[in-house]
């Protein structure tokens, strides 16, 4: 049975192309134009994933997200404009799984959908071994290897890498990284992150100047790229 996706957007023309496109990609599509319709649809139609536009006529997209997170862990992908950066970060911190900027290509969106859905399954299955660009992260044995060689990481670097790996394929905000690795008091200490990500890349990337594993999401956070 194909997975069901709820598209929440008040722009009819966005709905107009998303519906046939997602259908063609093999998903079931449910539509909602307002926040309240969206909340109702999540409860009644039982979708597997929500695509949520932040600008809704009746309520703020972030409020919709907060309501959802009160009772479900359903993956949510945020649709937003590039200039509304702070909103985007706030939504991610509120528990959105990922975001995509308008305008976007359908391939990009389906890739995000796949990652989010897979992550949901994996979260149910427990931690696993993650492979990316030849790098193997084994969270059970606490081992990071490239080929035959073990990569030596400091405890902080390891924490950082595993946190990214747990959310592999999805963006993790600066705040999340800082508060989980350094503690709640360091939510704003962005310079820690810059230094440690730099060190980490030196150790795990093939070419640290062109990182292929830990990607920067400008102004938002970092994303660990995985082989799909």
């Amino acid at each position: 049975m194909s997975e069901r996706i709820l598209v929440v957007d008040d722009e009819p023309q966005i709905q107009r192309f998303l519906k046939p496109a997602l259908k063609a990609a093999g998903y079931d599509v449910v539509e909602a134009a307002t926040g309240s319709e969206a909340l109702k649809a999540v409860a009644t139609a039982a979708p597997d994933l929500v695509i949520l536009d932040l600008g809704l006529p009746d309520m703020d997209g972030k409020d919709v997200l907060t309501s959802l997170r009160g009772w479900t862990t359903i993956p949510v992908i945020i649709l937003s404009a590039r200039e509304r950066e702070s909103e985007k970060i706030a939504a991610l911190d509120l528990g959105a799984d990922d975001y995509i900027e308008k305008p976007f290509g359908i391939g990009e969106l389906t890739a995000r959908i796949r990652t989010a859905l897979r992550h949901r399954e994996r979260a149910a299955a427990g931690p696993a071994v993650i492979t990316t660009d030849g790098l193997v992260i084994d969270t059970v044995r606490r081992l990071v290897t490239r080929g035959e060689e073990a990569v030596r990481l400091t405890p902080k670097e390891y924490d950082l890498l595993t946190l990214l790996a747990r959310h592999a394929g999805r963006v993790v905000t600066h705040k999340t990284l800082l508060t989980s690795v350094w503690g709640p008091a360091h939510g704003e200490d962005l310079h820690y992150l810059r230094v440690f990500i730099g060190q980490l890349r030196q150790k795990i990337e093939r070419d640290p100047t062109q990182p292929a594993i830990v990607r920067t999401e400008p102004g938002v956070g970092y994303r660990l790229v995985i082989d799909l």
């Binding site: 966005i14 192309f17 259908k23 063609a24």
Partner: peptide, 27 residues
Amino acid sequence: LRTPLATIMGAVTSLRQLGDKMEPESR
């Protein structure tokens, strides 16, 4: 500017990547 642009981008990429799986009416 962005809303029509998003529609155009989305529709064009959908047609290119998923067009062969769509109904003719949808296309």
